Amino acid sequence: MTTLTERLKEAMDELELHKPVDLARYCGVSEGLVSQWFSGATSLGPKPLKAFARKSKFSLDWLTDGRLPKYRLDGASSEGPGATDEAIADRMRVEITVMDSLDFGETEMLEIYRKIKPEDQEALKDHAKRMIPVETAAHKSFRRNKP
C-alpha cells in the first residue's frame, strides 16, 4: 500500500504539477496544508479530497488510501454524486480508527490483500478461514457438561 505522500507525488506527476504550491492551487488550499499532507501531520481532509477528485481523474478510494481503481471509470465521484463532505469524513475517520488499531502483521496482511486481484482475495479469505481451529464435537460436548 502506498502512503499519502507517494500518492500525492504520483498524482502531481500525472497532472504535471511540479511544486507543492501548484498542488495547493489545484486543490484550492494553502501551501501550508499541502506541506502538512506531505509531512504526515494531517490527512487529506474531505473537502480538498472531494475537490481534488472532482477536478482530476483519480478515484476517492485511491486518493484516500490507495485502493484501486486508481482512476474514476465514469468521470463521476467514486462516492457517488450525492455524497456529502460529512459522509466522506465519516468514512475516513472509521478507516483511520481501524488502521490505528491494527498491529504490524495485520497491517501487512491488509496491504497484501489490497494489492491482489479480487478473485485472489476470495481465495485468500477461503484459505484463511480453513486455518482457523475448529472445536471438535467431543470438545464442545465436554464444555457443555462442565459444572
Results as ranks from 00 to 15, higher is better:
Met1Pro: 09
Met1Lys: 02
Leu8Glu: 09
Lys9Glu: 04
Glu10Val: 06
Ala11Pro: 01
Met12Gln: 06
Pro20Phe: 02
Val21Cys: 05
Asp22Ser: 08
Arg25Asp: 12
Tyr26Pro: 00
Tyr26Val: 01
Tyr26Leu: 08
Tyr26Phe: 15
Val29Ile: 07
Val29Lys: 04
Val29Trp: 02
Val29His: 08
Glu31Ser: 13
Glu31Val: 11
Leu33Lys: 00
Trp37Met: 06
Thr42Gly: 02
Lys47Thr: 15
Pro48Gln: 13
Leu49Ser: 07
Leu49Trp: 02
Phe52Lys: 13
Phe52Gly: 05
Ala53His: 08
Phe58Thr: 03
Ser59Arg: 10
Ser59Leu: 06
Asp61Tyr: 10
Trp62Ala: 04
Leu63Val: 06
Asp65His: 06
Gly66Glu: 00
Arg67His: 03
Pro69Ala: 05
Lys70Asp: 01
Leu73Arg: 14
Asp74Asn: 15
Gly75Met: 00
Gly75Trp: 01
Gly75Val: 02
Ala76Ser: 11
Gly82Gln: 14
Ala83Glu: 04
Thr84Gln: 09
Ile88Cys: 07
Ala89Lys: 12
Arg93Ala: 14
Arg93Lys: 13
Arg93Cys: 10
Arg93Gly: 01
Ile96Phe: 13
Thr97Asn: 04
Val98Ala: 11
Met99Leu: 15
Met99Thr: 14
Met99Cys: 14
Ser101Lys: 03
Ser101Tyr: 04
Leu102Val: 05
Thr107Pro: 10
Met109Gly: 02
Met109Ala: 15
Ile112Ala: 05
Pro118Phe: 05
Glu122Val: 11
His127Gln: 07
Lys129Tyr: 03
Ile132Met: 15
Pro133Asn: 01
Pro133Gly: 01
Val134Lys: 15
Ala137Thr: 07
Ala138Gly: 14
His139Cys: 14
